[in-house]
Every structure is written in C-alpha cells, then in structure tokens.
Design a protein around this nucleic acid. Structure first.
Lengths: 187, 187, 187, 187
DNA sequence: AATGAATGAGGCTTCATTCAT
DNA sequence: GATGAATGAAGCCTCATTCAT
C-alpha cells in the first residue's frame, strides 16, 4: 500500500474499512477513530474525504443500495423474461444479496436512516413497475388488492425468511412462491 | 405535581418521558439527561427506578411488547373463532397498534435490541400456532410451503403497509387478504 | 431485632455493619447506603447517629484503637512484670490483634486518616513509657540510640511480619526478639 | 508553553501535575478533572496519554518505585562494599528519599495499591538478598531469627522515623544502627 | 495532502446529604 | 425517631471535529 493514493482510492479504502467495522461491531459502534485506524490513515484525514461521520455513513448506505439495485434493474429491463420470471429473479437476487451481506445489511439498514430515501424509492419503483406491468399483462391477478399495499408488503416480507440461514435455496423457493401467491401469478 | 411520588408513579412518569423522547429523537439519542429533564426530575433520580440506561430502554420495549401481545393472546385462545378469523383479528390488531404508535414502534424496534428476545419469540409462537393449527384443521392450504418461512414472511410483511397512513382501513383489509393468500386460506 | 432500639444500640449496630463492610470491601467502598442496608435501617437514619460519613468512619477507627489499647494499658500498669516482659506482652497483643482483624485493621488504618491523632498518640506514649522506664531500670540498653526514633521504628516494624499468616506463633516470637535486640534488652 | 507538545512531554507534564495533586490532596482525591486542570490541558486529553485513571495512578507509583530502586540496585551490586555497608547505604538512600518526597511517598503508597506488586517484590528481593548474603558471609548473626520475618520488620520499620523531620541525619544514623542490631551485624 | 494532538461537550453512573412525610 | 425519595455535584470516559504543523 503506497503512502500516496488518489482520492478515489483512499475514499474507497475508507469505505471498505467502515464496512468491515459496521459488520463486525455495528454501525453505532463504528467511530471515526476506528475507521481511520482500520483504513490505515490518520483520524483527521477522514475529513478530507467525507464532510462528517454522517456523510460517511450515508455513503456506506448508498454503496449498498447501488449493489442491491444494479442487477435487478437489468432484470426488469430484460425483454425476454415473463413478469413472473422477473419477480422470481428479483426476489432471488435480493435474498441472496441479503444472505451474503446479512450482518452488514442489517447493521446499515436498521440504523437510524442517515442518507436520503432516493435509493429506497428506486427499489420501490422497480418492484412496483414489475407488478403493475405484470398485472396489466394479465400475468398477475391482484383481485382488487391495492397495488401499492402489495408492493410494501412484499418489500418487507422477503426480509423475514432471510434471517434463517439453514437452507437458503429452500428459503428462496418458498419466498418466490409467496410472491406469486400474493400477486396472484398465474401458475 | 408534588415533589415526592410513589415509585410506581415516578417510574411511569420516567417511562412516559422516555417514550416521548424516543419517538421524537430516536432511541439512540434518548440520553438519561434528557429523560430526566423531560420527566422533571434530577438526573440521578433516574437510577432510583432503573438500574441503568439499558434497563430503562429495555423496560420501554417490554412495555410495548406487552401491549402488542395482550389482545392477540386472547384472540388466539378464543374458541369461537375460526383460524382464518383469528388470523384476520391478529393482523388487524397489530396493524392498528402500529398505526397508533407508529413512530414509537419504529424508534423502539429498529434500535439495537436491548432487552431479551423473549417477547419476539412469543409473537412468533403465537402467530405460528395459528398457522399450524389452521393448516391442520384444513382451513389453510400451505401447499408444500415451509411453515416457518411463511411465518417469518408474514411477520415482516405486514409492517410495510403500515407506513402509509392514507387509508388504514383499506390497508388492514388488504393485508388480511394477503395473509389469506399466503396461507392459502380457503375463501 | 425489634423495630425500636435505643440510640446506643442502633449506633452499635451501624458501627458493626460498617465494620463488616470495611473488611469485606474496603473503607473506600463502604458507602452510607451500604452501611444502612447492612444495618437494616434507612439511609437517612444513619444521620441520626452520625453527623456525616467522615464521622462514622472516625468512630470506626476510634473503636479499633480502643480495643487495641485497652489490654496493653493494663499490661503496662502491671507491677509484677519486668519491662522486657511488658515489651513482649504488648508485642504479642498487638500482633495477635493484627492477625485476628487483619483485613479490618488495614482497611481502616491504611485509609486516609479520618479521625484525630489522639489514639495514635496514646499508643506512642504507652510503648514509649515502657522503653523509657525499662532503660532507666537498666533492663534495656539503648546505647546512645534516640528513644523517640527507636519507638517509631518498632511501632512501624512489627506490622510487616503480620502480613504473612503462615505461622503466627513464630512471627510473634521473632518480633519479640527483634524488639529486644532493638532495645538492647538484657537477655 | 506551546499548544502542541510531543507525547513524551505532555505525559510528563500530566504526571507532574498528578504528583503535585497527590501530595496536596491525597491520591484518592486526585481526580482526572483536577489533573487536567493542573496540567493545563483538556480533561479528555488525559486519555491520549493514559488508558484510564488507574493507569495514570499506576504510572505515578511506578515512577516513584523506579526512583526508589535504581540507586539501591547499584549499591547491592557494588563489589567493594561490605554487606553491612550495603545495608547502611540502602537504609540511607531510602530514608533520604522518604524525607525528600515524604508527602508524595505516603500519598502514593498508603493508597490502595493500583499497580502491580512487582516493584514491591523487587525491593523485598533486594534487601532480602543483602541480608541472606551478609549472613552467609558471616557479617550478620541472625541467631535463629527467620530471615523473611526480619526482612519484613526492617522494610516497615524504617518508615516510622521518617515522619519526624527534625534531624534527618540523626534519624538515618539511628536507623542504620537499628538495622545492624536487628541483623546482628558484627560491630 | 496528511497528520495526530487537542478540544470540549456530552454520556453514564455514584453518592453524601437533605427533607417532606 | 424513622423513612426513603430526591437532589445535584462530581466522577470517569468517549468521540466527532478542528487546526497547527
């Protein structure tokens, strides 16, 4: 590790260190001093890259959100998939993501919200569009259910089964079916 | 407000003040000093009623859990209700509770857990028993779904729609139907 | 234990409780609250018997001093003993006392002095008189040594061997001989 | 006094301030806040140099012990001195040290021990070795006395005469002779 | 750009003492 | 005489942030 690094690299090193700490000790206990130590730079130098601790934490969240939304965006745009298949694919991606980054995920999202709600809104829009389009295409049968409410229900619901790691594959399969039941996906 | 109060009264006053603060500023930012000020007593007096800040926060949670579980326990034990009706009733209770105490609810439950997991387990057991019994009674058709996974899904899912206050009644009705869809309740 | 006690009895109960605590947890950690609890009375009631914590602690010391000086006073006054025998007897008493109340002794005397120096002065006088008189009687041979200095030396010196409990009898015998060597007691 | 100082300098400043306070008000009453004020730095800055108040206090003791043991170690190792001469030299050093730092000495050593017992053990070993070797060399005649007990006796005894400042030289000379009497040093 | 000593407000907790009952 | 709730100052420690170098 050279002593001089470009700002981008340094910023990334700091974020990575912060991520590690957030997972290991929780967001609340991730102090600026610890992050600096873990990143191998001086405490004061953190402030060359982030305006404040809040700013750093918000960047952490944004990072996570970006990873969470990238692939699903592609899935949603894929013309070759049925809406039900898209639903399945998005669920699988989010759940696997959750399994992989479980601790970080909860450390970051359970914390008092520090950043903007934009990314959350993006996730909402993404899944919402799939449901709307699928319903219009006749693949889903909401049977009078409010689309917005179904959306919120699913967005929260899939998290629950992610807490039990025993059999991820089975969990994914079950939740996919639960999504289909909720949306009235035509089998 | 007299200067001397019975321990019960003071304890309640402190808890109420803490509750108010937790809602307004978040659990993390609810310091002993603020609670004392809000309760109108000296900082040191907090410790006449609680062993520590953790103890106080745990009491807050316990309080909330108790309210959340009392009525559903009765519902689950009611011999006159069908299992689907019990499901509906529990959902309604939890959602209305959530609507009423929205900010507190999230301030308290999103925080790092301070108390025991007992009450959470109690909630899980309560809802789990309804699902199990309903399935055995033939009222629900899980169709191969893992009961535990469905349980976790529902336990998290109903929270989502509680965030949008526009039409509580509609939200409740929708979520009830979503619960029925998930459990395969025979319409 | 009746609820109402004469002030003298109560005062003694409090002192006994304080003594117990001082031994078990150290003087510094002997708080008024603990003493009250151990004595079975209310915290505020301590102040009916003692002006302050300092006062209570001073009373503890005075108590201990009294026990420490009572018997040696008699010994010093006993016409039938030689001066060397008195020296031996006083040493033995003080050492055995120390062995018996070791923890309390050090808890109390090693603490910042809280009371007056009167009792310490009394001990000094008592032992000093024995040395002076023994020297005048020709039983001791100070050989030019300053009486006051010998006195201080002995008064501190006998404490050291009291820390090692393995063989009290041997310790006493050894220290008695060391006192004789120091005072030049004619064997 | 510049605002920024090297850690070594600041650490010493803090220790010096703490030393002053310990002498003036006693170890127990030497709070972190007072030390900081006396050292002219912020309270929090104390923790840049010491892990805790205990750590600071232990450093104080260690400091004192180091000064107390340095010269005697050299004396004990000096091949040109007789054992009796070593005994005299060590006594003189310790007593003069005690006279110079009287208040600090007692403030620090009478307090509940905060650091390790290592240095005390070192002092014990040092003096014990002199006695043992002197006895084996035939310079001392313990006459059946237990070496360990004599050691403890002397280690405590020399402190007493240090309390009376009137004539340090005489005090030293007297205690040297008392040490010789105790060890049966051949005049 | 980078450092890290320094700050100072704020956090939790203890405790001797008072005083209304 | 006895109580124990209440006080408030003081104690130790943490930490985001600043700034001289």
């Amino acid at each position: 590790m050279g002593r001089f690094q470009s700002p981008e690299v340094r910023r990334r090193q700091v974020l990575d260190a912060a991520t590690r700490l957030a997972v290991e000790e929780g967001l609340e206990n991730t102090s600026v001093a610890k992050v600096a130590a873990a990143a191998g730079i001086a405490k004061g130098s953190i402030y060359l890259h982030f305006d404040s601790r809040q700013d750093l934490l918000a960047a952490l969240q944004a990072d996570l959100w970006a990873q969470m939304l990238e692939r699903p965006s592609e899935i949603a745009a894929d013309q070759d998939l049925s809406w039900a298949a898209k639903l399945d694919a998005v669920v699988e991606h989010w759940m696997r993501f959750e399994f992989d980054y479980h601790d970080l995920y909860h450390a970051v999202f359970h914390a008092v919200t520090t950043g903007s709600d934009e990314p959350l809104e993006a996730a909402r829009t993404l899944l919402g569009d799939v449901i709307t389009a699928g319903a219009q295409a006749g693949e889903f049968d909401l049977g009078g259910l409010d689309e917005g409410i179904v959306l919120e229900f699913l967005l929260h619901g899939y998290i629950g089964p992610c807490f039990h790691h025993s059999d991820p594959d089975a969990a994914v399969a079950n939740v996919q079916q639960l999504f289909r039941r909720a949306t009235g996906a035509i089998a």
